[in-house]
């Protein structure tokens, strides 16, 4: 895994001139983690999208480096993993087909069938790998999102509402993913749950006056 740094500098986001958050700054490097907390509507998910390159910031900058070299946003997809309620996988494909297709679209050469088996076993879906995703429960879909997020061993893992729809066994699985990411990369968790926030070594709260 590459050594990555993430620098968020005075980032602000507005929708139709309504300020969601402003002057958010932090810096993270390999082995560091951050919990983003705040009331509903404070912009946690929006900030996650800005960091993931899915939304542009109204002001401020988000910069990434890998092994000391500045990372182009175009190449961010090779280094980032995201689990979020607004990120969906394809219902008409099976769990393993989803991972295979999406890794090919990402041109991720490292995600071969052995790696797919490894992550599906890790999230407890190997037995149901050939079933269509539309037959999965909401908890199983959440597990598949984890398999998709960690498939390419991302340097930066973003988790938005990380344990939604998961049972106790699923929450344990998430804790293992978090522990692994805390050892090898950068972890950012957007949550309102104190237990989930405790997974991270630092935190920021959005929506403060």
């Amino acid at each position: 895994m590459n050594s990555m740094t993430l620098t968020v500098d005075k980032v602000a986001k507005e929708f139709n001139r309504r300020s969601i958050f402003r002057d958010v700054s932090f810096s993270l490097s390999q082995g560091q983690s951050l919990a983003i907390t705040g009331r509903n509507g404070s912009g946690k998910s929006t900030l996650i999208k800005v960091i993931a390159g899915l939304l542009s910031a109204t002001r401020g900058t988000v910069a990434y480096t890998v092994d000391g070299n500045s990372l182009n946003v175009e190449d961010l997809r090779y280094h980032i993993g995201l689990v979020s309620p607004y990120l969906q996988l394809y219902d008409e494909f099976s769990g393993s087909e989803n991972l295979e297709l999406l890794s090919k679209i990402r041109s991720d050469l490292g995600s071969d069938s052995k790696r797919i088996q490894e992550v599906l076993e890790a999230v407890g879906l190997w037995e149901r790998r050939s079933d269509y995703v539309r037959t999965y429960s909401s908890g199983m879909k959440q597990r598949l999102k984890y398999a998709f997020a960690v498939l390419h061993r991302p340097s930066l893992l973003l988790l938005d509402e990380p344990t939604s729809n998961l049972d106790q066994n699923g929450i344990t699985m998430v804790a293992q993913v978090v522990a692994e990411q805390n050892r090898s990369g950068i972890l950012i968790v957007a949550t309102n749950d104190a237990d989930e926030a405790a997974w991270c070594s630092s935190s920021i709260e959005l929506g403060l006056p």
Binding site: R77, L87, I105
Partner: peptide
């Protein structure tokens, strides 16, 4: 289906 963001995450706009 809500998969637009998944594609945005893994593929460049030109792709």
């Amino acid at each position: 289906r809500g998969t637009t963001m998944t594609l945005q995450l893994i593929a460049s706009p030109s792709t």
